[in-house]
Design a protein around this nucleic acid. Structure first.
Length: 262
DNA sequence: ATGGTTGCACGGCAA
């Protein structure tokens, strides 16, 4: 089974590229973030035409929004709200007995200080709440996948330059600590780093605010796929599909791929 | 140090 996660930055603007990615990667499931559309206006027909007839949708107008599109039936679709908000950031669905968590963690604004930046405080609280919630499920042994735009680049090799980026939201020490705690909550394993060593530079996001995204290797690895411990023996491969960053018009994020053996 | 771009039921806000 092949799963692909992609922050599309508007699903309606990216239908042509979803078709190209489908042709190139032949996923069984797409997990999308920043769909930016209410469920009633979600382009269901375009997904059905590609063979993704099973949809779980959690969208809102203009901002956020997550979706799971699968070739096979989705079960037990569940919406999670955190921090007293209805932000459309966490959607859960069962697929072939695996609990799939499609996540869009708050970006956190510009200033990495929770006392003066409410968005950063929200990001940290969101991570704490999620960590506590998964820790309570640790004993269940239910196979799970957590994937999406986590808006944190944890390793020095996940950013273009480690030291200066420690002052930039997405690579601060407190975010990296909270991401490590989230990973520890259930013993999640980073599927991409399971196959690609931490010494290797990786990015899944390149800012729009650069004249040329290919210059200076200034991307960050913000999008992740994690699996619960019992799924580790089934990991068949993982990769980042950077090609689409050069397509027009691009999302600022690119797809991340994981293969699970049967 | 600042500003750079994109997307959104259209224009200030979030990323």
């Amino acid at each position: 089974m092949r799963l692909v996660t992609w922050n599309v930055n508007s699903v309606r603007l990216r239908l042509e590229q979803l078709s190209r990615i489908d042709a190139a990667l032949r996923p069984d499931v797409f997990c999308l973030q920043e769909t930016k559309v209410v469920d009633s206006l979600f382009p269901r027909e375009a997904f059905a035409a590609l063979g993704y007839e099973h949809l779980a949708l959690l969208g809102q107008k203009s901002y956020n929004g997550v979706a799971i599109a699968a070739r096979r039936p989705l079960t037990d679709v569940t919406i999670q709200n955190w921090c007293g908000r209805e932000d459309c950031r966490h959607l859960i669905a069962g697929l072939d007995g695996i609990e799939v968590h499609c996540l869009y963690v708050p970006a956190g604004g510009d200033v990495p200080d929770p006392d003066i930046n409410e968005k950063f405080a929200h990001k940290l609280a969101f991570l704490d709440t999620l960590t506590q919630w998964f820790a309570e499920q640790r004993a269940s042994g239910q196979p799970k996948i957590l994937l999406g735009d986590l808006n944190i680049a944890p390793l020095p090799s996940d950013v273009w330059s480690h030291r200066p980026m420690l002052k930039v939201v997405s690579h601060t020490a407190v975010e990296i600590e909270k991401m490590a705690a989230l990973q520890e909550s259930l013993g999640w394993v980073d599927a991409v780093r399971h196959f690609i060593p931490p010494s290797e530079r990786l990015s899944t996001w390149w800012s729009y605010r650069a004249a040329d995204w290919t210059t200076s290797d200034r991307g960050r690895r913000l999008d992740h796929i994690w699996v619960s411990p019992t799924l580790v023996p089934r990991l068949g491969g993982a990769s980042i599909f950077a090609d689409s960053r050069g397509w027009q018009p691009p999302s600022d994020h690119v797809p991340v791929v994981v293969d699970l053996l049967d």
